[in-house]
Simulated scan of single mutants.
Amino acid sequence: MAYGVIPSGFELKRLPEILADIEAANVATFGPGVVQSPASPLGELNGLHADLAASLWEIALSVYQSLDPDQAEGVRLDQIAKLRLLTRGLGESDIDFRQAITNAGRARIDMSDLGQALSALNGVTWVQTYVNETDTTDADGIPRQHVAVAILGGDDDEIAQTIRAYVVPGIGTHGNTTVETTIEGFCRSIKIIRPVEIAVEIEVDVIARPDRNGCPPPSALSIAAGLADALTGASRPRNGQDVTEYLIRQAVESRYPNIEVDDVRASIVPASPGAVPVAISFFQIMAVSADRISIVVA
């Protein structure tokens, strides 16, 4: 049987197999009458030799695994990520970071890499990347053959430097903020989207029912807090996403299966809530807080 690095991966040679090979080699050298029972002097030497060899095989396996992003952990995973210009985000687990390195479940590898790198920058709280590879301006106003990065927080120059590492010369950048920076001795203008946060007020009429176990539904305050959580942070709706009934229904009903959204009203502060949708432009992003969410339970 083959051991070590083979086409299917790494085959570990274990202690019983190592000991058997050592005993077979002794028989070939000293003859079939050689005494190598576990209690014999030669048997004890065999065991010591096998233990040392097994440890070396385990080290070899660890080295092999440390080169594979699907198996590497901790600092070694961070080192592998540097080959793809990626940095672990604050508090990001090995599992999540491994998916970012291997692009598991992601169709746009280049945009995924750019988003991951930007998210890891100090002070960045939210980021969304866009690309228009067509020959016409798209529905969001992004010109043809341009990349757009919408981002909250972080330093403009660090953001521009990071974008340049992923966006090759000849591909334009689109945004409402121009960052003048020097990259490899050349002056470059990088455009980014700094979305204007638009305060939104939301009113939701819901129908509440006990769950299947007979437990009462959450309170109006709990529903408001859950909705606010769904619409903020890294999971917040992207820039240019309108306030719609579908958005609110999805956020509430996916979190609370025993809550049904009956009606939604919203507005841009300080206007009073009215019929949805409420339009948010591409250079804007909705800002929601629990104290601006009213839940009416039927």
Rank of each mutant, 00 (worst) to 15 (best):
G31D: 04
R194F: 06
N176H: 12
E203I: 05
T134H: 08
K191F: 12
I223Q: 02
R292A: 01
G233L: 01
S8N: 01
V206Q: 11
L231Y: 04
P195D: 09
V269W: 06
I293S: 09
D229E: 13
A290C: 00
I190L: 04
A251N: 02
G214Q: 04
P7A: 15
Y64A: 08
D155S: 13
V34N: 04
V127W: 00
L83V: 07
R14H: 11
R194V: 07
G74P: 01
D94T: 12
V124A: 11
Y64R: 07
D205K: 13
A287Q: 14
V297A: 11
I192R: 12
N122I: 05
L231D: 04
E17I: 03
E44F: 02
N258A: 13
G89D: 10
P210L: 01
G153M: 00
T173M: 11
T102C: 10
T136W: 03
D21T: 03
S8T: 08
T129K: 05
G43R: 04
I193T: 08
S62C: 07
L67I: 02
H146G: 03
D113F: 11
N103G: 09
I18P: 02
L114R: 08
F283V: 05
S40R: 08
L67Q: 13
R212P: 00
D291S: 12
T129S: 10
P38C: 00
W57D: 14
G47E: 12
Q65G: 08
L152K: 11
G105T: 01
V124L: 07
V200I: 15
E92R: 07
I190Q: 07
R144T: 07
L56K: 10
Y3C: 01
S55N: 10
A234I: 03
R144W: 02
K13S: 02
T178H: 02
S289F: 01
D78L: 03
G123Y: 07
L114F: 12
N122S: 15
E245L: 03
N239W: 00
D68N: 15
A139M: 05
L114N: 09
G214A: 07
N26R: 11
S40A: 10
G141M: 04
N239V: 00
E201T: 14
Q250G: 00
A104R: 15
L121T: 12
E201K: 15
D263N: 14
A81K: 02
S254F: 01
R292P: 00
R255N: 09
E245A: 13
F97K: 15
R238V: 03
I295M: 08
M286Q: 15
G185L: 10
P41A: 11
Q250D: 15
E11D: 12
R98L: 06
V5Y: 00
Q79T: 06
L152T: 10
L15Q: 12
D70M: 05
A290M: 03
V34T: 13
V296P: 00
D205E: 12
I142R: 15
N176P: 05
A81H: 02
D157E: 15
T87S: 13
S93V: 02
V27C: 02
S254C: 03
V131N: 09
E158M: 06
R88H: 10
R144P: 00
I171V: 14
V243P: 01
